[in-house]
Structures are given as C-alpha cells and as structure tokens.
Design a protein around this nucleic acid. Structure first.
Lengths: 203, 203
DNA sequence: ATTGAATGTTAAAGGTGTTAACATAGTTAA
DNA sequence: TTAACTATGTTAACACCTTTAACATTCAAT
C-alpha cells in the first residue's frame, strides 16, 4: 500500500493538530483554513469535507482543550479536602498559564458562542463537574460552609477563571514577581469559606 | 458655514460612535473599517487619516469603555466599608452585563494585547485603582484582614472579573434564575475576608 | 495669492471564508 | 468484472476584508 496521493487518510486529525500548533505559536487569529491546508499540503476547500466551517474546527480544538483541563483537574489528589480544593485551583490556573491561547479560545465567548456547539458545551460541563464535585466533597466532610452548592461553585470558578484570565493577559503584574500569588488568592477564599473554626491562615 | 462636503468635521468621533454601535449590536468581529465608513458615508481609507489601523480604533473603543467602568465604580457610596465593597463589586458586574461586547473587547486579550497601546493600559489602570482604593479603605478602617494589598485586590478583581465573564458568556446558568447570585458570590468572599469577628453572613 | 499641510478620493494588492463545478479514489452490488 | 455510488480531493470564483499608493480637494498661513 504505497502512499495515497489523492485520498489523504486522516485529514481531520491532521487539520486539528496543525490548527492547535498555529494557535499555540501565533494565536487564534492566525488560524486560517488556507494556512492549515498549506501545512498539510492540501487545498483549503478540502477541509470543508470534514468541518462545516472554520468555527466548527475551532470548536473541536476547544473540545480537546476542555478534555485536557478535565484530565488535569482529575489528577488532583482528593484525600484531604483542603489540599484537594487548593490544588484543583492551582491545577486550573496552571493549565491556563501553560495553554493561554487555547484557554482563551475555550472561554473567549465571542468566537465560540455558548449554545452553538452542543459537544463543546458538554465538554465544558464535564470539566466544570470535577470542580463542582470537589467543592461538594469539601462540604460533605464538613470542611466548607454549608452554603448552596451552586453559590460556592460559582464563587470558586469565578475566582480561578478570573485569576487565570487576568494572569495570562498580563493584568496582574505580581504574577511573575510573586510565584505564590495564585496560592495566596486561593487560600484567601479557602480560609474564608471554612466551616466552624475561626479563620486562620496556616503558617 | 454650510455643511462641508469634502472635509468632514469630526470623522474620528463619528467613527468611534459607529464602531461602538456595531460592537453593541453585532459584536466585535462585525466591526470592519468598510462598515464604519459606509455608515458615515465616507471611503474606508479615509479612516487611516485618524487611526493608524483597525486595532488602534478598537483600542480607542476600549479606552472609553474603561472610562465608563471607572466612572461607574466611582459613583459607589464609600461611607460604609462593607456597603462600598459589596456595591463596587455589583457595579462592576452590572457594567459587564450592560456592555458584554464592550467588556469582552476591553479584556479580550487576544485582540488588544497588553502593552501595545499605552493609553489603553493607563485607562485600565485607572479603573483598577478605584477598586484598589476601596479595598485599601476597607483595610484602613480595620474591616478587612490585614493581608498584603496586592493579594487582596488580586483576589477581589479575579472574583468580579471571573464572575462577569462567566455570566455574560452564559456559563453560570443561575445568573438568570437567581438575580442575587452576584450578591451571594461577593458576600461569600467578603465575609471570608473580614477581620476579627467570627464569620457571619447578615440575613 | 501661493504654498503646504490636512483630509478626503479611487485603484489595487494580497489575504480571508466559502461555494460551485469538476475529478478521482475506494466501496458496494449486479 | 464492471457499473454505480459515495467519499474526498481539485481548481475557479465570489465577496469581503485590511492596508498601501497615487491623486484631489479644502483649509490655514505666510
């Protein structure tokens, strides 16, 4: 079976890979169907056999991004609630810092509007659930205040998402100077969200 | 002085106004120099006499956005620290909800990279300072924990920014159902950040 | 009044997503 | 085996975009 000249094999996956590569190195605005096609050695309209349009291709990219994020959050050790909550936050921020362009694509909003790509929304939910379950666990063992779960998850998610975005966009100058800013921010919320015992920040 | 036919008067301001109008109604991707020029009744290259390129025009838009945000935050009553902190957060979120497309442009990151437009960075800083001063005031009167100011402001800003983005992008479904979610999220952080007295959320 | 700077104009280059029409490779069925 | 069908590639073309170049008009100042 010599190399097929006309039919290509797995153009969809190659296209995604090249798009991800462009995204990482040059940002999402540099992702053009022509550029992807040229890298693969194929004509641009060929991509339309596998993606209905450019936005759908970006949506696939964002989906794999959410899967990467979800896997990363799942790897956090869940034995101790405090450790789990802190490190799931740190893992979240670390992902955004490692993949800033991908993170922006996932949460950009303007490019991939919520509701337009059901599988993307589902992938986002799956990542969110890891965070939600960890918060629920923290409440279940009595470590966190017994406030409504949606309220606590919204707060936690807002904090890590906001910190991630502000950091990768360079709005928090302390992020470079002080490598523990993320930990400090997370600890501040965490200590304030504890049940029973009077507030205390260890150390 | 009858209406000048060739020279236009104040093309820069009209261009900004039309761009803002397009941004609000159709999103930033719909902002094209051609569309702006057509609305005004002028040729597209004419805009290059007043803006070095498309990105600079968007930067001007973002600058006025930061001024609007700053003014809104300044209007918050600063007599009581708790009231001030809560309502500056609510005002921040309300701005993002009222101007989602403008807010995304201001904080998009991908379109207007930090450092490329000094006046834009300065405008952003001015808005941030209002938040920072309020937090400092809260610490000054002993209402908030005496943690480092950069840490507390980073936390507060992360929370309001994250909540705003997640809300306007539709990731927090409770935002519609429960109009007090913003207040709950802010109160959770606020109560956890209080000094001395044991945590309590006032009914 | 003439010169020069501002501010408009049209023409054109080069990039983009996307569709249409056509060509070829692989698969299934007569 | 050959015919038909489907999948997947091709080139050509359209409409739109930003941006530059070359030219025209208006205004301000010597």
């Amino acid at each position: 079976m010599p190399r097929p000249a006309y039919h290509h094999g797995d153009l969809p996956q190659q296209a995604q890979q090249q798009a991800l590569d462009i995204l990482r190195t040059e940002g999402d605005t540099a992702i053009s169907l022509r550029a992807i096609a040229k890298r693969i050695g194929v004509s641009a309209p060929a991509l339309y056999r596998h993606f209905s349009d450019r936005e759908s291709l970006l949506a696939e990219l964002a989906i794999t991004g959410f899967q990467l994020l979800r896997d990363r959050l799942r790897r956090v050790d869940q034995t101790d609630p405090r450790h789990a909550l802190l490190h799931i936050g740190l893992a979240y921020v670390a992902f955004a810092e490692d993949e800033p362009n991908l993170y922006r694509l996932m949460f950009g909003g303007r490019i991939l509007p919520k509701g337009a790509h059901p599988r993307l929304d589902e992938a986002g939910l799956e990542a969110f659930r890891v965070l939600e379950e960890t918060v629920a666990m923290g409440q279940g063992v009595g470590y966190l205040k017994p406030l409504p779960l949606p309220l606590m998850t919204a707060t936690a998610w807002s904090l890590v998402h906001g910190f991630s975005e502000l950091t990768i966009d360079g709005h928090l100058p302390g992020a470079d100077i002080e490598p523990t800013l993320a930990e400090g921010v997370l600890t501040l919320l965490l200590d304030g969200s504890r049940n029973d015992q009077s507030q205390q920040s260890p150390q």
